[in-house]
């Protein structure tokens, strides 16, 4: 049993401080009063659970109907999530894992820790995706983001990028999911020629960062002309900062997809609640939170359409390896990548 924190959006910071101080020391005692409300524990990545992600909205909406206490446990980023699931094993307190992507689901399925979700596949993805264990809740296209005021004619393919003297910053495929996504993108688009593409890109890559936020931060500081991010990144700047200078370069080879999924842990002690939550991820209430809090596309088409900026950069072709192919491709692709860049 965990412990509960009052709704943070209502409480003033003074109240928060009092509560948090108590919670820090007396976490176990604080739970006593709520012992009869069932608790649904959802293991997710930090930015989903954080104040600025979909977490608080999802929690409020789901708790309004479930008669339960929904608790998010942040576990670092997407890659840390799978390690966390494996560390906890069958003894996990969590009922649902939310935020793995399809480059990780093969390994996640192999743990045998997940149970079928039984929910019909969502229809809002650009490619059909149906997995008995993992239910998509949002998705996005990887893309190189640039500043329109500094770069007027962006490259239209990896080959054009390699031929240019543009500088890009990318994430490391060994520590981050966008980095791994780029690796699979090049592999899916070029197959056996992938190493050649990487060799061509070597002089364009300023540096390789541990995660997305470092890379994006470097780009915003002017360290690179482009950064590996998502086609929806410009929409963040447009909507949250009224800044329309950012754009995503559309590549002719197509864009690799990141499909984010949720799964039910077989060892859950709240199977009905977990099922109800997975069903809830497909609802309008959940899905409508996704674009402007998680800055991804909803997995189910929204009744009111997408917010402005989300239609601005629409690749013509989507690339996605099956989880098994992605898992098989990762090792050799990583060796190619390392050999091409470690000069």
């Amino acid at each position: 049993m965990g412990f509960s924190i009052p709704d943070q959006s209502v409480a003033s910071w003074r109240d928060l401080m009092k509560t948090r101080l108590l919670a820090a020391g007396l976490a176990t005692i604080a739970t006593q009063g709520m012992a009869d409300t069932p608790v649904l524990t959802v293991l997710t990545y930090d930015s989903f659970a954080s104040e600025w992600g979909p977490g608080p909205g999802v929690e409020a909406t789901f708790e309004a109907t479930c008669g339960c206490d929904l608790q998010f446990v942040p576990a670092g980023d997407g890659a840390a999530l799978l390690a966390r699931v494996q560390l906890e094993g069958a003894g996990s307190q969590a009922d649902v894992v939310l935020g793995l992507d399809t480059s990780l689901t093969d390994a996640a399925a192999a743990t045998g820790l997940f149970a079928p979700h039984g929910v019909a596949a969502p229809t809002g993805l650009p490619v059909p995706y149906d997995d008995p264990l993992f239910l998509p809740f949002d998705w996005g296209w990887f893309a190189f983001v640039y500043d329109k005021t500094k770069l007027s004619s962006p490259p239209t393919s990896f080959e054009a990028l390699a031929a240019s003297d543009l500088k890009v910053v990318i994430e490391d495929p060994r520590s981050s999911t966008p980095g791994l996504g780029l690796l699979l993108w090049v592999k899916a688009a070029y197959g056996d020629r992938a190493d050649e593409i990487w060799a061509g890109l070597a002089d364009n890559i300023v540096t390789v960062t541990p995660g997305w936020s470092e890379a994006y931060g470097l780009f915003l500081e002017g360290e690179a002309d482009m950064v590996l991010s998502y086609t929806t990144s410009p929409a963040y700047h447009l909507i949250a900062e009224a800044d329309d200078t950012k754009a995503a370069a559309l590549f002719d080879e197509g864009h690799y997809l990141q499909v984010e999924v949720a799964g039910k842990l077989a060892a859950t002690d709240q199977p009905e609640l977990a099922d109800a939550f997975l069903q809830f991820t497909q609802s309008e209430a959940f899905q409508s939170l996704i674009p402007t809090t998680n800055w991804m596309y909803p997995a189910v088409p929204l009744a009111g359409g997408l917010p402005e900026g989300f239609d601005a950069f629409h690749p013509v072709k989507s690339l996605l390896m099956s989880p098994a192919d992605a898992a098989a491709a990762r090792g050799p692709a990583l060796d190619e990548w390392r050999a091409a860049l470690a000069q």
Binding site: I205, W337, L341
Partner: peptide, 8 residues
């Protein structure tokens, strides 16, 4: 990692 410039 950030300043190293790549997998080397």
């Amino acid at each position: 990692l950030t300043l190293g410039g790549g997998p080397a």
